[in-house]
Each structure stands twice: as structure tokens, then as C-alpha cells.
């Protein structure tokens, strides 16, 4: 088993698992009840799936020049995904699209309550 065949095998495994994780993310986004829960599946499996596919691409290309570019894409995705989901979660909570029956702990509502008078003036 030459080195390239081994690298191709690893790349194939990474690509397939990455694609399956993207599928898991899509299923999660479709089936979860409200926006806050959908963000769980929209960020975690999606980022991991993308990282696995980038690792597979790196193993497949075997070119040290592009490893930096792939690391940059992975870094951007790791940095931007939490920020985007935080903003969306914040907006959806303040817009009131929260399924109260599904919440276990709700610490933000009373914090928002004493913020409310500030908005009034």
C-alpha cells in the first residue's frame, strides 16, 4: 500500500464522514422545534463536517502550498459560525420566538425585564 493510496483512503473516509455530518446538520435544522434549538445543529455538525471535508481535501491534494489556504478557510468557519449563531439567537430571543414550553432554564427574560424601562424613554 503506497503512501498515496493510504492518503487517498484517509481522504475518502474524511470526505464521506464530512458529507454525512453536513446531512446531520440539515436534518437537525429541519426537525428541531424552534430557532434556538435549530442553531445547535446548524453550527456544530456543520463546522465539524466542513473541517473533515477540508482535511480530506488536504490529504487528497498533498500540496503543502494549499494547506495554509485550507487552514484559513477552516479558521474563518470556526470563528464566524459562533458569532453568526450568537447574533441570530439574540435576535430570535428578543423577537420573542422562543418556545417557552421547551425551555428548562430561562435567565435572560428577567435581565431583559429590567432593561425594558431604558428603551421606553
Amino acid at each position: 500500500m503506497s503512501w498515496t493510496a493510504l492518503a487517498d483512503g484517509i481522504a475518502a473516509a474524511c470526505l464521506v464522514t464530512g458529507a454525512l455530518l453536513a446531512l446531520v446538520a440539515a436534518i437537525g435544522v429541519l426537525r428541531f422545534p424552534d430557532v434556538l434549538t435549530r442553531m445547535h445543529s446548524a453550527t456544530k455538525p456543520q463546522v465539524l463536517g466542513l473541517l473533515l471535508i477540508l482535511v480530506g481535501l488536504g490529504f487528497r491534494l498533498r500540496d503543502p502550498g494549499t494547506i495554509g489556504l485550507l487552514a484559513m478557510v477552516a479558521l474563518f468557519q470556526l470563528v464566524t459560525s459562533p458569532i453568526a449563531s450568537h447574533m441570530v439567537g439574540r435576535a430570535s430571543f428578543r423577537a420573542g420566538q422562543v418556545r417557552r414550553d421547551l425551555l428548562v432554564v430561562d435567565e435572560l427574560t428577567d435581565l431583559l425585564a429590567d432593561e425594558r424601562p431604558r428603551e421606553g424613554d
Binding site: 453536513a22 446538520a25 435544522v29 466542513l50 468557519q77 441570530v88
Partner: peptide
């Protein structure tokens, strides 16, 4: 809601990247 669509579009962009 609009935010559901935003979350789904974000994952769709990731699928396109994949």
C-alpha cells in the same frame, strides 16, 4: 420566521462549500 431561513441559508452555504 425570517431567522429560521437565515440559519438554513447559512447551512446551505456550508453545504455548497462542502
Amino acid at each position: 420566521t425570517m431567522l429560521d431561513r437565515v440559519v438554513a441559508l447559512d447551512v446551505l452555504v456550508a453545504v455548497v462549500i462542502c
